[in-house]
């Protein structure tokens, strides 16, 4: 469990944008893994199995539970500015992000991803972290291909100022 708990938690956390929910999901993933312990113990694909189950459970959680209770539990109005990026994502003029060390910059970018609107964040994470194609994401999220592409493009555009102010640019080579 120790070998995989960070991977499972990261996947759930990046998809939900919420650590508490991610911990709940991670717990459920490991409980399911325990039920298949005999097969997973020696399987070389245990990591892949855990990642797939985590993604599946998280998407299931987001689509079933969050939407079901949104009407009751969320007071903020999501319709008026759903596609815009929150002001906290835009770098402040006095923030010298380039002066931060690599770890701090990564933490900032990670936080920015988790603060994206849900539909943008989920599509972005599935594309860049889970390596799904646009078509696969469209099927998984039951949304049109155009919407998925638009959401991912907007999410990238939202992250761009932060990346630029962190001293990361498209021409940087590794």
């Amino acid at each position: 469990m120790r070998a995989y708990q960070d991977m499972v938690f990261s996947t759930a956390s990046r998809l939900t944008g919420n650590d508490r929910q991610a911990e709940d999901i991670a717990q459920e993933v490991f409980l399911r893994a325990y039920e298949h312990f005999a097969q997973l113990r020696t399987s070389p694909t245990a990591g892949g199995w855990l990642k797939t189950v985590t993604t599946h459970l998280t998407l299931n959680y987001l689509s079933r539970y969050r939407r079901r209770w949104r009407m009751f539990s969320e007071l903020r109005h999501t319709t008026d500015d759903e596609d815009s990026v929150g002001p906290e994502l835009a770098p402040q003029p006095d923030m010298l992000l380039a002066d931060l060390n690599s770890e701090q910059r990564q933490a900032l970018i990670d936080a920015a991803v988790r603060k994206l609107p849900e539909h943008q964040r989920v599509a972005l994470v599935l594309y860049h972290f889970e390596e799904l194609t646009y078509e696969e994401i469209s099927i998984k999220l039951r949304a049109s291909l155009t919407k998925i592409k638009t959401d991912i493009r907007r999410a990238r555009a939202a992250l761009l100022p932060l990346l630029q102010s962190s001293g990361i640019d498209a021409g940087q080579s590794h």
């Binding site: 708990q5 960070d6 991977m7 499972v8 938690f9 990261s10 956390s13 990046r14 650590d19 911990e23 991670a26 990564q106 970018i109 990670d110 991803v113 972005l124 860049h128 972290f129 990238r156 992250l159 761009l160 990346l163 990361i168 640019d169 498209a170 940087q172 590794h174």
Partner: peptide
């Protein structure tokens, strides 16, 4: 750019 940056992010530490 986004792909490269996000893939470089380390895993988040589980609680």
């Amino acid at each position: 750019l986004v792909n490269r940056t996000l893939r470089e992010l380390p895993l988040r530490r589980a609680p």
